[in-house]
Structure formats: structure tokens, C-alpha cells
Amino acid sequence: MTTKSSISSGAHAADPLPYFVWSDSLFTGNEAIDADHRRLFDIAERLRRESLQAQDNAAIGNSVDELLDYVQGHFAREEALMAATNYPDLEHHRLEHTLLTRHVQKLTKSFRDEKPVASTQIWQFLRRWLRYHIMETDREMASYAAAVSLHHAGNKADSQADCLSK
């Protein structure tokens, strides 16, 4: 016997339109970060669809776990990049990551406790947060990291040119 989802969708189960859609407007310019973001959108959309289709809790639970794991891994990769480039707004960025992680952890706990979750609100929050965070915070960080990388590449080329001219 399968247990049906404790996530209440607030939407029709046959909803054919994707809610988490990646678009070029979300590119940060950093290939690794953009790949992570696309993957986050894919996981979130799959989780949303599973809940709309009232799949069993095991399938949804796996997607909830995957979302939490991927969010945490992605944030660790971003924070490592920021630390490596001495990003001046690292602490604020890290705080944003902490807040979203806590939100996803609450979703996970509610799901595990078999409490109904108003997923329409969750999907709206998650989509808004992802779009804002990517388009504002991550884009700024990726731009900074690219500038630092370019600066280091320029200094390395200058050093090599100096060595060749001696």
C-alpha cells in the first residue's frame, strides 16, 4: 500500500505547465554556477510535479532529500569560490544561503512529520527566492569572481612577458 503525499498542492493535479523554468535571463556568466542553478530548477520542478500528481511519499521524500542535499552542495561550491576570490560580500551571501537552507530543512521536516505543507506557497517562495538570488546576488558574485580571475590572468601574462624580455 502506498501512502499518498502529505504535500497539498493547491493546484490541479494535471497542471501541464512547468513552474520552475530556466531561462537565459538567469545566466550568471559562470558555467559551473549556471549548471548548478539549472539542476536546482530541475529538482524543484520534479518535486513540484510529484506533489501535484499525488505520488507516494517515498518518491517525494527522495526528491525532498535530493533538493536539500543539492542546495547544500551548491552553496558550499559558491562559498568556496567566494572565499578563493576574497569576495567582499561573502558573509551576507552566506547568510542568504543559510536562510534558504533553513527553509528547505523546514519543508523536509514537515514532510517527514507527515504534516500538510501548503506547497503553492512553497513553490512561490522558492521560485521568487531562486530568481532574485540568482539574478542579483549570484550574478554580482560571479561578475566579481570573473574580474578577479581576469586580473590574475593579466598579472600572470605580465609576469611571463617580463621574464621573456629579460
Score class of each variant (00 low, 15 high):
residue 93 H to E: 05
residue 106 K to C: 03
residue 65 D to R: 14
residue 143 S to P: 00
residue 143 S to H: 13
residue 56 D to S: 02
residue 76 A to W: 00
residue 142 A to W: 04
residue 106 K to Q: 12
residue 84 A to V: 02
residue 112 R to F: 00
residue 20 F to I: 04
residue 98 T to H: 09
residue 42 D to M: 07
residue 139 R to M: 10
residue 148 V to G: 02
residue 67 L to M: 08
residue 4 K to Q: 09
residue 109 K to S: 08
residue 49 R to H: 10
residue 52 L to S: 03
residue 55 Q to Y: 03
residue 136 E to M: 05
residue 79 E to V: 04
residue 9 S to G: 15
residue 14 A to N: 15
residue 57 N to D: 15
residue 101 T to E: 10
residue 117 V to T: 09
residue 59 A to M: 05
residue 21 V to M: 06
residue 106 K to Y: 05
residue 25 S to G: 07
residue 92 H to Q: 13
residue 118 A to T: 01
residue 10 G to R: 01
residue 49 R to K: 15
residue 42 D to A: 15
residue 22 W to C: 09
residue 101 T to Y: 00
residue 75 F to W: 06
residue 147 A to W: 01
residue 160 Q to L: 14
residue 108 T to K: 15
residue 113 D to R: 09
residue 117 V to G: 03
residue 15 D to S: 12
residue 105 Q to R: 14
residue 72 Q to T: 11
residue 91 E to K: 12
residue 16 P to S: 10
residue 130 L to I: 10
residue 149 S to A: 15
residue 101 T to V: 13
residue 123 W to M: 07
residue 57 N to A: 13
residue 116 P to A: 07
residue 80 A to R: 15
residue 52 L to Q: 10
residue 164 L to V: 07
residue 138 D to I: 04
residue 149 S to N: 14
residue 74 H to D: 03
residue 32 A to H: 07
residue 131 R to Q: 14
residue 6 S to C: 09
residue 160 Q to S: 08
residue 6 S to P: 08
residue 104 V to A: 05
residue 31 E to T: 11
residue 139 R to W: 06
residue 89 D to S: 08
residue 71 V to M: 04
residue 39 R to S: 07
residue 23 S to Y: 01
residue 79 E to H: 03
residue 87 Y to H: 06
residue 157 A to N: 10
residue 15 D to N: 15
residue 24 D to I: 03
residue 84 A to N: 10
residue 125 F to N: 06
residue 134 I to M: 01
residue 52 L to H: 09
residue 85 T to V: 07
residue 143 S to Y: 06
residue 62 N to M: 11
residue 106 K to L: 10
residue 71 V to G: 03
residue 145 A to I: 08
residue 157 A to Y: 12
residue 104 V to E: 02
residue 57 N to G: 11
residue 97 H to T: 08
residue 21 V to A: 06
residue 124 Q to R: 13
residue 104 V to K: 04
residue 112 R to V: 05
residue 116 P to H: 11
residue 146 A to P: 01
residue 89 D to G: 00
residue 47 L to K: 04
residue 54 A to T: 08
residue 22 W to P: 08
residue 85 T to L: 01
residue 105 Q to T: 10
residue 60 I to A: 06
residue 62 N to T: 13
residue 104 V to F: 05
residue 128 R to S: 13
residue 64 V to P: 02
residue 36 D to F: 01
